[in-house]
């Protein structure tokens, strides 16, 4: 894949945008013209070369700028990366998983040379070279979780498995859909998802937990989730809500196509070998409405989904006040034609 890493911002002047190629590979999350919660899990297997599902960890044109944004968030608030003491081993597991996957899938960008416990990691796009001893925290500038996730797009949550439940006990969370790692760390699977409306009553989390507890080494799984955000802001955290909340008011009928973004999370789940923990990478992809409607099928379908979404969900996802403007904009791209099943462009 031939990619030029973009130099762009996810704050202040918001210069983020997607190239034409990147729009085509966007993980559009709706396989039909309506949306309701489901445990939409599938094996995280490679499909469609060039798509975001091709590799275990997708690296795209936003990589370098996203990592720069993450570093800024961590400078302002180091509590966005935390690990309870018993989760260090899971951090090493994650570092190993990401380094071996990236070196295999993107050998022109990432190199990993291993001689027993002596490891040598080279990250060309970020100009990082590091020799360290696997398992020895004192040989890295950060803990293993923080070290590797400062170099990997997406949020990461490490879940310990005990008492037939999953416990959120470590994470790197800077591109989240309005939840706080600092507040939620230590919670079990149900407590952590407590604020989500409707889904508990539907038994969604019971079924999801049962599925996740049984994920085994070598058989990762994935699902897509989504919300909407005013401006291409990665860090929609509760910590900074008092700074970004008012940006929702800036959305007008004129600028909605440029300002409103569909925010899709590619959530994947891997069993980690040495700790028997699970890692839950949550990769955020942003697309402007005006970029999205360049794919006719997506324009038609997204209009129908947003128009018909239950009120509780539009409220929970935080765009209830802007929904009329979004629907009005999208309606211009819905000519009423049928759409084919599945998420891919026609």
């Amino acid at each position: 894949m031939n990619i030029t890493f973009k130099d762009e911002t996810f704050r202040d002047d918001y210069t983020f945008s997607n190239s034409e190629e990147q729009i085509k590979r966007f993980p559009f999350p709706f396989h039909e013209d309506s949306y309701m919660y489901s445990v939409n899990m599938e094996p995280h297997a490679a499909v469609r070369p060039g798509s975001v599902f091709e590799n275990d960890f997708d690296v795209d044109e936003h990589y370098v700028s996203e990592m720069r944004d993450r570093a800024k968030v961590l400078d302002e608030d180091p509590l966005r990366c935390q690990s309870l003491p018993h989760m260090t081993l899971a951090g090493w597991d994650l570092l190993e998983l990401i380094m071996t996957s990236k070196a295999k899938d993107y050998p022109h960008w990432f190199e990993l040379h291993r001689d027993g416990k002596n490891w040598h990691w080279i990250n060309h796009p970020l100009n990082i070279e590091q020799k360290f001893i696997f398992g020895d925290e004192t040989t890295l500038p950060y803990g293993p979780l923080e070290y590797i996730t400062r170099q990997t797009q997406g949020d990461f949550v490490l879940l310990d498995q005990r008492e037939e439940n999953l416990w959120l006990e470590a994470g790197m969370v800077t591109t989240q859909a309005d939840w706080s790692l600092d507040f939620d760390i230590g919670m079990n699977f149900f407590e952590w998802h407590a604020p989500v409306p409707l889904a508990h009553e539907m038994g969604i989390f019971q079924r999801a937990l049962k599925f996740l507890l049984n994920i085994q080494q070598g058989t990762p799984a994935r699902r897509l989730n989504w919300t909407m955000t005013a401006n291409p802001l990665l860090d929609t955290s509760p910590e900074n809500y008092h700074k970004w909340g008012k940006q929702k008011l800036e959305v007008t009928r004129e600028n909605v196509g440029n300002k409103m973004h569909l925010r899709v999370e590619l959530q994947t789940f891997f069993r980690l070998p040495r700790s028997n923990a699970l890692v839950f990478p949550i990769r955020c992809y942003l697309i402007k409405l005006e970029e999205l409607v360049t794919i006719p099928k997506w324009g038609r379908r997204f209009h129908r989904v947003i128009r018909d979404l239950p009120e509780e969900l539009a409220t929970y996802k935080g765009f209830i006040d802007n929904r009329p403007k979004i629907v009005e904009y999208l309606s211009k791209y819905d000519d009423g034609q049928d759409t084919s099943l599945g998420i891919w462009p026609e």
Partner: peptide, 12 residues
């Protein structure tokens, strides 16, 4: 088979 753990240590 790839290893499976049904008798994991409680690391806490």
């Amino acid at each position: 088979s790839t290893p499976v753990n049904l008798f994991s240590l409680d690391l806490t």
